[in-house]
Simulated assay, not measured.
Amino acid sequence: MLRGLDSRGTSGTDESTIIKVAERESFDGDITVYVNESVSGDARTRQRSVIDELDRLQAAGVLDDTSVIAWQDADVVSYFEEFTDVVGEGDLEPFFEEFADGNAFDLPDVCIAVREVGELTGLYPRTKNGDTQTVEDGLRALCGGDRVENVDRTA
């Protein structure tokens, strides 16, 4: 029985990614990756690694589809408001910061948003209860079949 896939990463390291495929709950959410296209060097390599990892998850049948959106092409105000409304501004810092009365933003070089039926259920990076939850934490959870929903929705 196939329990997992061992996939060689493309980030130039010898590390392998283990993707759990057996005995995992199905993931029906949508994954959106937001990237800052104006970065270079290590930040660009990190973005590529995140996208490649999501491609491997898709190839393994864990994810149906992912979207990649450049912050430069996005309605940043709308996304910032969505993230703030759901997560809280304090949990976005220091990764997301608003300046000049909402006319300027400092955004992470790479961000993953998880949505189910259009509702934000997971956001990486962020802080939660004082703990930092990185993009890589979200990827590890996806690979391991763990929950990636780190947003507490209260209606």
Rank of each mutant, 00 (worst) to 15 (best):
R3S: 07
L5N: 05
L5E: 14
D6E: 14
S7C: 08
S7W: 06
R8F: 06
R8G: 00
G9H: 00
G9N: 04
G9C: 03
T10S: 10
T13F: 04
D14M: 02
D14T: 06
T17E: 11
I18F: 10
I18S: 10
E23N: 12
E23L: 08
R24E: 13
E25T: 11
E25G: 14
E25P: 07
E25R: 14
E25N: 15
E25K: 15
S26K: 14
F27I: 04
G29Y: 08
G29C: 09
D30Y: 05
T32C: 09
T32F: 00
Y34I: 00
Y34H: 12
V35T: 15
V35Q: 08
V35F: 02
E37G: 12
S38M: 08
S38I: 02
G41Q: 10
D42M: 05
D42S: 09
A43L: 14
T45L: 09
R46C: 00
R46H: 09
R46S: 11
R48A: 01
I51Y: 04
D52H: 11
E53W: 04
L54K: 06
L57C: 14
Q58R: 15
Q58Y: 03
A60L: 02
A60P: 01
A60F: 07
G61R: 07
L63R: 04
D64L: 03
D65F: 12
D65L: 11
S67L: 09
S67R: 15
V68F: 09
A70T: 01
W71Q: 04
W71N: 06
Q72V: 00
D73E: 15
A74H: 03
A74W: 02
D75L: 01
V76N: 02
V76T: 11
V77W: 01
S78P: 00
S78H: 09
F80E: 01
E82S: 07
E82R: 11
E82C: 02
F83C: 10
D85Y: 03
V86A: 12
V87E: 08
E89Q: 11
G90S: 13
L92K: 03
P94I: 04
P94M: 12
P94V: 09
F96K: 01
F99R: 11
G102F: 07
N103S: 08
F105R: 00
F105W: 10
F105M: 03
D106Y: 00
D106H: 03
D109R: 03
C111I: 00
I112V: 15
V114S: 12
E116Q: 10
E116W: 02
E116K: 13
G118E: 04
G118W: 02
E119Y: 04
E119I: 13
T121R: 15
L123F: 14
Y124V: 13
P125G: 06
R126P: 06
R126G: 02
T127H: 10
K128L: 12
G130R: 10
G130W: 07
T132K: 06
T132N: 10
T132D: 12
T132A: 15
Q133W: 11
Q133A: 13
V135Q: 07
V135W: 01
V135T: 14
E136Q: 08
D137F: 01
D137N: 15
G138K: 12
L139Q: 07
R140E: 15
R140F: 04
A141C: 08
A141L: 09
A141N: 14
A141V: 00
L142S: 05
C143Q: 14
G145P: 13
R147H: 08
E149M: 05
V151T: 09
D152G: 02
D152T: 13
D152Y: 03
D152F: 04
R153E: 09
T154D: 14
A155C: 01
